[in-house]
Design a protein around this nucleic acid. Structure first.
Lengths: 197, 197, 197, 197
DNA sequence: AATGAATGAGGGTTCATTCAT
DNA sequence: AATGAATGAACCCTCATTCAT
């Protein structure tokens, strides 16, 4: 059972030595590159590619899941920020629509984000916190939508997260990413409206 | 480059010797069991579990993808049959609704089917043929739906397949499978209607 | 937990292909050489030294303990044979004395035997069987010794085995092996006599 | 060649800064805990367990052997003291008997002591000195025993040390530690008497 | 057809050790 | 003195794949 470390949720390191920070960065960059390729995330290959000893990789990311979450962290933060902006209702467009669009676009641009969004539990406290903020923003958007009669009642924030995962999958399950995306978001958006009486 | 065999699509074997047939069966059964577990499909482990030499596994399934498609074949055939029944319009319910429901239920019951449904190209001619039949049935259902004004114009059969993949993912991306399924199908169904004018 | 294979006791392979047999031999020979050196038995190093793939080593000896027992098997059989000869009482010398002498000499000549003799449970059925035969021979020797009043009553076959392990250790715990051996056996032999009344 | 430092015997540090002393203690405590478990003494794991940097461990114990001797030092001192008391012949019991009993009991209670007692040469001057005192006490006990005709002539202090190591091994080589111990000591004691004429 | 032995690449992980801070 | 980051060798083990039998 090799992946039984870090059972306790991991906090993001603070105050890293500058060289350590640089290494962390190189590893993350290499990981992002590998994630684009078809292979999984092999710790050894990662270290090689990053020009760093294996041990260093393990020090920074004791578990593949920790690494994944670190990879997706930036994207997740971006998504959360966008979600909160949308939920704050700057009035422009339908908050939920903005949210779905942003969520899908960002997943397609960042596979790590898609992975993190779909995983059952977070390994890092940081990730958990961001996901919780995301849930809050989604709930707010839904509440507003429900109040204005534009969102059905039987759907909650977690449903939206799951539908976002599904959207990304639908787009990935075929050729072409640009044109289907808009349409699929449209389908889900319309599907989220309250059923006609 | 380990997976470079069988670039040419593979036809399903016919007229197997009875013992060969039995072996094929044992391997498929073992593979189904392994697919339920969390591990991948390791040829060696598979052979061990099936009580068969590795060579035998390779003879029957030269590629992992071939094996996967063989695994999903039964489920795929079932889905195709259901789709054609629905498209034939026995009149009962909305064909598209039946289709989505069946497609989701069967994917959840059969991970191999979900995989096959999402893969870009088929390795076996058989699979390709079934997928083509599925496409036909979906197209028929859509045509009928469009004709009766219950399905939007900008969605084609492949979109439905992809949305089916997305549905399965949405269900898998969270806890609980029963109650969300129906709701998510509902969302997509409603989303597929023509937009209100 | 990497050593959880071969939980079921392993029987010695029969009817090996000739090349497999040759490999088995090469590995055992290399292992014997490594055991003389100060390092442990590293499977990788072993394979390298034997001129054989790692996989081959694992196929033949799924566990380090299995390997050790295979290494010690010959020595153990020799000891068992000697013990049975001694127990059969060819009349020459005191059976127990012969046994201790043989047991010590063979352990010193064969570190694997010393290891096997001291391990709490056998991994291979074969080893277990030989150990059982040894126990029988020891018991017989003790019984005869007790009957003739030359062995104390409160010592059984397992005690003798353990004392044999102790003897080997005593010899190994210092410089010089030849002269102490005889003396130490002597000490134990005299110590095994019934206490003076 | 990792263990080529500290070829020159090491003196025990004196006048440690209080915090250094505390660290030394934590490391030793952690080492004692690890030695009870089945794993070896890994410097890294040790540091982790002790809540101390690896560097600190190395500063205090440049070599694993030094660490081991430090671990066993207390036990060794205890044994030496007991041996000298016994050799001083407080008259009570047979000195040699007391010695063997104490030596075995202490080895069983303290694996590090057993290790130190069996190692060919000491890494620390301190250990060497204690071992020398032990030798002296054993020699005294033997001399007295020989003088009173209760110990055979052909056994010296180092033999007794080695037999002590053997005793510990005999006890460890099987199930049960309490009841065999006394018997095995008995066997060796009786074996050390001068042979009947 | 089937078998299963062999191979060796390669991923996972730990650890001893050094050294900049 | 202490720290802990970094390194990389080395081990463990599993697999995909080939091929002689």
């Amino acid at each position: 059972m090799p992946e039984d470390r870090a059972a306790a949720p991991l906090a993001r390191p603070t105050h890293l030595r500058p060289d350590a920070l640089a290494n962390r960065w190189r590893v993350l960059a290499a990981a992002a590159r590998q994630l684009d390729g078809p292979e999984g995330l092999a710790m050894n290959a990662l270290a090689r590619e990053a020009g760093v000893g294996v041990g260093t990789v393990y020090r920074h990311f004791p578990t593949r899941q920790v690494l994944l979450e670190a990879l997706g962290a930036e994207g997740l933060e971006g998504l959360v920020a966008a979600a909160e902006r949308a939920a704050d209702g700057d009035g422009g467009e339908d908050a939920l629509a903005q949210l779905l669009r942003a969520g899908l676009r960002r997943q397609l641009a960042d596979p790590a984000l898609a992975t993190v969004l779909a995983e059952p539990t977070a390994a890092c406290t940081d990730t958990a916190a961001q996901l919780e903020r995301l849930r809050g923003a989604l709930e707010a958007a839904l509440a507003h939508g429900r109040a204005t009669g534009r969102v059905r009642e039987d759907v909650d924030a977690d449903d939206v997260r799951r539908l976002l995962c599904g959207l990304a999958r639908a787009v990935d399950a075929g050729p072409g990413r640009a044109s289907p995306s808009a349409r699929y978001v449209d389908v889900v958006l319309q599907g989220l409206r309250p059923p006609a009486p």
